[in-house]
Protein backbone atom coordinates (compact mmCIF):
# COMPACT_ATOMS: atom_id res chain seq x y z
CA UNK A 1 0.00 0.00 0.00
CA UNK A 2 1.13 3.54 -0.78
CA UNK A 3 2.57 5.15 2.42
CA UNK A 4 0.69 8.40 1.74
CA UNK A 5 -2.61 6.53 1.39
CA UNK A 6 -1.83 4.65 4.60
CA UNK A 7 -1.01 7.95 6.33
CA UNK A 8 -4.29 9.50 5.26
CA UNK A 9 -6.33 6.43 6.23
CA UNK A 10 -4.61 6.04 9.61
CA UNK A 11 -4.97 9.71 10.51
CA UNK A 12 -8.60 9.72 9.39
CA UNK A 13 -9.41 6.56 11.36
CA UNK A 14 -7.83 7.87 14.56
CA UNK A 15 -9.35 11.34 14.22
CA UNK A 16 -12.82 10.01 13.39
CA UNK A 17 -12.83 7.53 16.27
CA UNK A 18 -11.63 10.21 18.71
CA UNK A 19 -14.28 12.61 17.41
CA UNK A 20 -16.91 9.90 17.63
CA UNK A 21 -16.14 8.90 21.21
CA UNK A 22 -16.15 12.49 22.51
CA UNK A 23 -19.46 13.66 21.00
CA UNK A 24 -22.28 14.61 23.32
CA UNK A 25 -25.03 13.52 20.95
CA UNK A 26 -24.96 9.70 20.42
CA UNK A 27 -26.45 10.04 16.92
CA UNK A 28 -23.49 12.18 15.81
CA UNK A 29 -21.13 9.66 17.40
CA UNK A 30 -22.68 6.79 15.42
CA UNK A 31 -22.48 8.77 12.16
CA UNK A 32 -18.77 9.51 12.70
CA UNK A 33 -18.29 5.83 13.47
CA UNK A 34 -19.88 4.82 10.15
CA UNK A 35 -17.39 7.03 8.24
CA UNK A 36 -14.57 5.49 10.32
CA UNK A 37 -15.72 1.97 9.37
CA UNK A 38 -15.64 2.88 5.67
CA UNK A 39 -12.03 4.04 6.01
CA UNK A 40 -11.21 0.79 7.81
CA UNK A 41 -12.78 -1.17 4.92
CA UNK A 42 -10.46 0.65 2.47
CA UNK A 43 -7.52 -0.34 4.68
CA UNK A 44 -8.69 -3.99 4.52
CA UNK A 45 -8.84 -3.72 0.70
CA UNK A 46 -5.23 -2.54 0.72
CA UNK A 47 -4.32 -5.60 2.78
CA UNK A 48 -5.90 -7.91 0.21
CA UNK A 49 -8.89 -8.86 2.36
CA UNK A 50 -11.71 -8.13 -0.09
CA UNK A 51 -14.29 -10.36 1.55
CA UNK A 52 -13.64 -8.86 4.97
CA UNK A 53 -13.91 -5.33 3.55
CA UNK A 54 -17.36 -6.17 2.19
CA UNK A 55 -18.37 -7.79 5.49
CA UNK A 56 -17.09 -4.73 7.36
CA UNK A 57 -19.40 -2.45 5.37
CA UNK A 58 -22.41 -4.78 5.28
CA UNK A 59 -22.36 -6.10 8.85
CA UNK A 60 -20.72 -3.28 10.82
CA UNK A 61 -21.87 -0.15 9.01
CA UNK A 62 -25.07 -1.72 7.71
CA UNK A 63 -26.33 -3.81 10.61
CA UNK A 64 -24.64 -3.11 13.93
CA UNK A 65 -24.53 0.68 13.73
CA UNK A 66 -28.08 0.82 12.36
CA UNK A 67 -29.08 -1.22 15.43
CA UNK A 68 -27.33 1.40 17.59
CA UNK A 69 -29.16 4.23 15.78
CA UNK A 70 -32.45 2.38 16.16
CA UNK A 71 -32.00 1.96 19.93
CA UNK A 72 -30.93 5.61 20.36
CA UNK A 73 -34.07 6.73 18.52
CA UNK A 74 -36.29 4.37 20.56
CA UNK A 75 -34.88 5.46 23.92
CA UNK A 76 -35.35 9.21 23.26
CA UNK A 77 -32.50 10.25 25.59
CA UNK A 78 -32.94 14.01 25.80
CA UNK A 79 -31.66 14.54 29.32
CA UNK A 80 -28.59 12.40 28.67
CA UNK A 81 -27.29 15.09 26.34
CA UNK A 82 -27.52 17.87 28.91
CA UNK A 83 -25.39 16.40 31.69
CA UNK A 84 -21.64 16.03 31.90
CA UNK A 85 -20.35 13.74 29.15
CA UNK A 86 -17.22 12.43 30.92
CA UNK A 87 -17.01 10.92 34.37
CA UNK A 88 -14.53 12.46 36.80
CA UNK A 89 -11.71 10.06 35.98
CA UNK A 90 -10.82 11.24 32.50
CA UNK A 91 -7.17 12.19 33.27
CA UNK A 92 -6.86 8.68 34.69
CA UNK A 93 -8.31 7.29 31.44
CA UNK A 94 -5.85 9.26 29.30
CA UNK A 95 -2.96 8.11 31.51
CA UNK A 96 -3.94 4.42 31.29
CA UNK A 97 -4.55 4.57 27.52
CA UNK A 98 -1.31 6.37 26.65
CA UNK A 99 0.71 4.21 29.06
CA UNK A 100 -0.57 1.00 27.48
CA UNK A 101 0.05 2.46 24.01
CA UNK A 102 3.68 3.27 24.82
CA UNK A 103 4.14 -0.20 26.33
CA UNK A 104 2.88 -2.01 23.21
CA UNK A 105 4.86 0.28 20.85
CA UNK A 106 8.03 -0.47 22.83
CA UNK A 107 7.36 -4.20 22.68
CA UNK A 108 6.45 -4.36 18.98
CA UNK A 109 9.25 -2.02 17.83
CA UNK A 110 11.54 -4.79 16.59
CA UNK A 111 9.01 -7.55 15.99
CA UNK A 112 10.11 -10.33 13.65
CA UNK A 113 7.35 -12.00 11.60
CA UNK A 114 7.07 -15.71 12.31
CA UNK A 115 6.61 -18.68 10.02
CA UNK A 116 5.08 -17.85 6.65
CA UNK A 117 1.84 -19.59 5.69
CA UNK A 118 0.96 -21.22 2.37
CA UNK A 119 -1.24 -18.39 1.04
CA UNK A 120 1.26 -16.32 -0.94
CA UNK A 121 -0.02 -13.46 -3.19
CA UNK A 122 0.33 -15.76 -6.21
CA UNK A 123 -1.95 -18.42 -4.70
CA UNK A 124 -4.51 -15.79 -3.68
CA UNK A 125 -4.42 -14.17 -7.14
CA UNK A 126 -5.02 -17.56 -8.77
CA UNK A 127 -7.96 -18.60 -6.53
CA UNK A 128 -9.31 -15.22 -5.23
CA UNK A 129 -9.42 -14.23 -1.57
CA UNK A 130 -13.14 -14.91 -1.12
CA UNK A 131 -12.92 -18.49 -2.37
CA UNK A 132 -9.94 -19.28 -0.16
CA UNK A 133 -11.56 -17.81 2.96
CA UNK A 134 -14.77 -19.71 2.22
CA UNK A 135 -12.86 -22.95 1.72
CA UNK A 136 -11.04 -22.52 5.03
CA UNK A 137 -14.27 -21.60 6.80
CA UNK A 138 -16.17 -24.64 5.53
CA UNK A 139 -13.42 -27.24 5.90
CA UNK A 140 -10.89 -26.61 8.65
CA UNK A 141 -13.06 -24.23 10.67
CA UNK A 142 -16.47 -25.83 10.21
CA UNK A 143 -16.91 -26.51 13.95
CA UNK A 144 -16.14 -22.92 15.08
CA UNK A 145 -18.41 -21.76 12.27
CA UNK A 146 -21.30 -23.80 13.68
CA UNK A 147 -20.56 -22.45 17.17
CA UNK A 148 -20.69 -18.91 15.76
CA UNK A 149 -24.12 -19.63 14.28
CA UNK A 150 -25.25 -20.97 17.67
CA UNK A 151 -23.98 -17.79 19.36
CA UNK A 152 -26.00 -15.70 16.90
CA UNK A 153 -29.09 -17.82 17.60
CA UNK A 154 -28.64 -17.30 21.36
CA UNK A 155 -28.24 -13.56 20.74
CA UNK A 156 -31.50 -13.41 18.74
CA UNK A 157 -33.48 -15.29 21.41
CA UNK A 158 -31.83 -13.37 24.25
CA UNK A 159 -32.43 -9.97 22.68
CA UNK A 160 -36.14 -10.74 22.18
CA UNK A 161 -36.54 -12.09 25.73
CA UNK A 162 -34.73 -9.11 27.29
CA UNK A 163 -36.42 -6.38 25.29
CA UNK A 164 -39.97 -7.77 25.34
CA UNK A 165 -42.31 -6.05 27.77
CA UNK A 166 -44.05 -9.04 29.34
CA UNK A 167 -43.35 -12.69 28.70
CA UNK A 168 -46.47 -14.82 28.77
Amino acid sequence: MNPYLFGYLGAAILALSALSLTRKNPVHAVLYMIVMFFHLAVLYLGLGAEFLAAVQIIVYAGAILVLFLFVIMVLNIKEEMEGERFSGGWPFGIAIASGLFLLVVLITGNIVPGQQGPYTPGVIAAQTNTKLVGTLLYTQYIFPFEIASLILLVAVVGAIVLAKKKLR
Binding site: L21, P26, A29, I72, I77, F86, G89, G93
Partner: peptide
Protein backbone atom coordinates in the same frame (compact mmCIF):
# COMPACT_ATOMS: atom_id res chain seq x y z
CA UNK B 1 -13.18 4.26 30.92
CA UNK B 2 -14.41 7.85 30.78
CA UNK B 3 -17.82 8.10 29.11
CA UNK B 4 -20.88 8.11 31.38
CA UNK B 5 -23.47 7.04 28.82
CA UNK B 6 -23.90 3.27 28.38
CA UNK B 7 -24.48 3.71 24.62
CA UNK B 8 -21.11 5.42 24.25
Amino acid sequence: LTRRSIIM
